[in-house]
C-alpha cells in the first residue's frame, strides 16, 4: 500500500459518503484571528549538480489573499563541514537564493544551512537561522541498483495513468521515498498534494515488479511519444514526516479521517518555520507507446458501449 493507494481509497469513501448522504457544501464567512508573522524557510540540497534553491518568505493572515511576502537581503550559505557553498539572491526572484550551478550533495553527508541577517518586515532586528539535514547513507551503487525502469498503464476505474516501477527495495535499512513525475521534462508534480511519499514498511527488501508508485489523475495528459520521467527521491525519516505532516495540514478537515489540526514539524531554528532538506535523487524515463494509448482507448470504448 503506497500512500497513493490510500489517498485514492479515502477519496472514494468520501465520494460514496457524499453521494449517499446528499451532503451539500457552500462557502461561508468565518472571521479568523491573526498572529504575529513568522519567518518561513524552504530549501533543499540534493545529489543533482545544479543551483540549489532556498526561499525565504513570511507567514500571512489566512485570508490575506495575496502572494506571500518575501524576505530579501539575507546572507545564506550551506556547508558540509568541509566545503562552504554560498547562496546569492536571484535578481529576478526576490527572496529566492541559489548556490552556484556546480554544487551537489553526497550521500551520507550532513548539510547545514545558515541564514544571516533575516529581517522580518516590521521586526526590530534581523535573525540568524540554522537548519541541518542529512542525505540518507545509501549503497554506493544506489544510482544503478535501486530503480530499474518504469512504464505507464491507464486505469479505467480512476480515469488516469498509473506510473508503475520495477525496482529492488534495499532490505538492510528503513527507507523513505518521495516520488515526483515530469512529463516531457516539465514538472507534473508541481503541488504538495501530487507529490507521493511512502515508507518501505510494508515492502522492505521486496522486488518490485510493476507496482503503481504514482498516479496521473487525468486521462488526456499522456499521448504516444510523450516522455514520462519518474524522480525517486530517497529522503531522511524526518523529511518524510515533514512532508506527511505538511500534506495532512493542507488537507481539509474530514471528521471521519482527519487527525486534529496541527502544525508540521520544522528543522529551522530560532522560531522560524519551514524545512531545509537534503536528499538523493534517482531517475528513469519512459516514452509512452501507441500500445499504451490503444489500451486506454479500448477501455474507454468498452465503457461507453456499456452506457
Amino acid at each position: 500500500m503506497t500512500s497513493s493507494h490510500l489517498y485514492i481509497f479515502k477519496n472514494i469513501l468520501f465520494a460514496l459518503f457524499a453521494f449517499s448522504m446528499f451532503a451539500c457544501s457552500s462557502e461561508i464567512d468565518v472571521s479568523l484571528n491573526s498572529t504575529d508573522p513568522k519567518i518561513v524557510v524552504y530549501g533543499a540540497i540534493t545529489t543533482d549538480t545544479l543551483a540549489h534553491r532556498v526561499e525565504i518568505t513570511q507567514t500571512a493572515d489566512f485570508f490575506s489573499n495575496s502572494p506571500a511576502k518575501v524576505i530579501s537581503g539575507a546572507a545564506l550559505s550551506i556547508t558540509d563541514g568541509v566545503n562552504l557553498f554560498p547562496l546569492t539572491e536571484s535578481p529576478s526572484e526576490p527572496g529566492v537564493y541559489y548556490t552556484a550551478p556546480d554544487v551537489y550533495g553526497l550521500i551520507g553527508k550532513t548539510y547545514t544551512l545558515t541564514a544571516d541577517n533575516v529581517l522580518l518586515q516590521g521586526a526590530p532586528e534581523a535573525k540568524t537561522l540554522i537548519a541541518q539535514s542529512t542525505i540518507p547513507d545509501l549503497d554506493p551503487n544506489y544510482q544503478t541498483d535501486y530503480l530499474d525502469s518504469i512504464n505507464v498503464l491507464y486505469n479505467e476505474q480512476w480515469e488516469g495513468w498509473y506510473v508503475n516501477a520495477w525496482a529492488t527495495e534495499p532490505a538492510d535499512q528503513k527507507n523513505f521515498y518521495m516520488f515526483k513525475v515530469y512529463i516531457n521534462d516539465v514538472l507534473y508534480s508541481d503541488s504538495l498534494n501530487n507529490i507521493i511519499i511512502s515508507d518501505d514498511k510494508l515492502f522492505n527488501g521486496n522486488a518490485i515488479s510493476g507496482a503503481g508508485v504514482y498516479f496521473i489523475e487525468d486521462a488526456d495528459t499522456l499521448k504516444a511519444g510523450y516522455k514520462v520521467t519518474l524522480e525517486m527521491c530517497v529522503v531522511s525519516e524526518d523529511h518524510y514526516y515533514f512532508m506527511f505532516e505538511s500534506q495532512t495540514s493542507s488537507h481539509p478537515q474530514i471528521p471521519l479521517f482527519s487527525p486534529p489540526p496541527a502544525n508540521a514539524r520544522t528543522n529551522i531554528s530560532n522560531g522560524a518555520i519551514g524545512y531545509f532538506s537534503a536528499y538523493a535523487i534517482l531517475r528513469t524515463s519512459y516514452y509512452v507507446k501507441q500500445r499504451d494509448v490503444d489500451i486506454k482507448n479500448r477501455l474507454i470504448g468498452k465503457r461507453s458501449r456499456l452506457q
Binding site: L32, N33, S34, T57, F62, S191, L192, S249, P261
Partner: peptide, 23 residues
C-alpha cells in the same frame, strides 16, 4: 469546538494553514 488557522504559508504551490490553539 474546532481549530481555526491563524496564518498561512505557501509550500510547493499549496497554501498550508498554520494553526494555534486546539479547538
Amino acid at each position: 469546538a474546532y481549530s481555526q488557522p491563524v496564518a498561512r504559508v505557501e509550500y510547493e504551490g499549496v497554501i498550508v494553514p498554520v494553526y494555534s490553539d486546539r479547538n
